[in-house]
């Protein structure tokens, strides 16, 4: 799960090329790795890939700050 998401961010969503790869603990939001539009795309990707629905009130920083956070969040939905 972690690898799938990291790969998707690196290849499709990152604003710039990420040197030495993305870590699961990297801050996606504060460091400008993913912009607002990229975040919306990431949510759609997660919904499709893991067949879950991200409810509006789950669209919060704590669930999407890092790839680790995202994985923890997805696990609660599966």
């Amino acid at each position: 799960m972690e690898k799938t998401i990291i790969k998707h961010i690196e290849n499709e969503l990152a604003v710039e090329e990420i040197e030495d790869g993305l870590e699961a603990s990297d801050d996606l939001l504060g460091s400008g790795i993913v912009d607002s539009l990229g975040m919306m795309k990431l949510v759609s990707f997660i919904e499709e890939q893991f067949a879950i629905e991200v409810a509006p009130d789950e669209m919060v920083i704590d669930n999407f700050m890092t790839v680790e956070n995202i994985c923890e969040y997805i696990k609660t939905k599966l």
């Binding site: 801050d27 504060g30 919060v60 920083i61 704590d62």
Partner: peptide
């Protein structure tokens, strides 16, 4: 306000 909050309106409201 952090960059992260600007991407999540619910977090911003909180």
């Amino acid at each position: 306000i952090s960059d992260a909050h600007l991407k999540f309106p619910i977090s911003l409201a909180e």
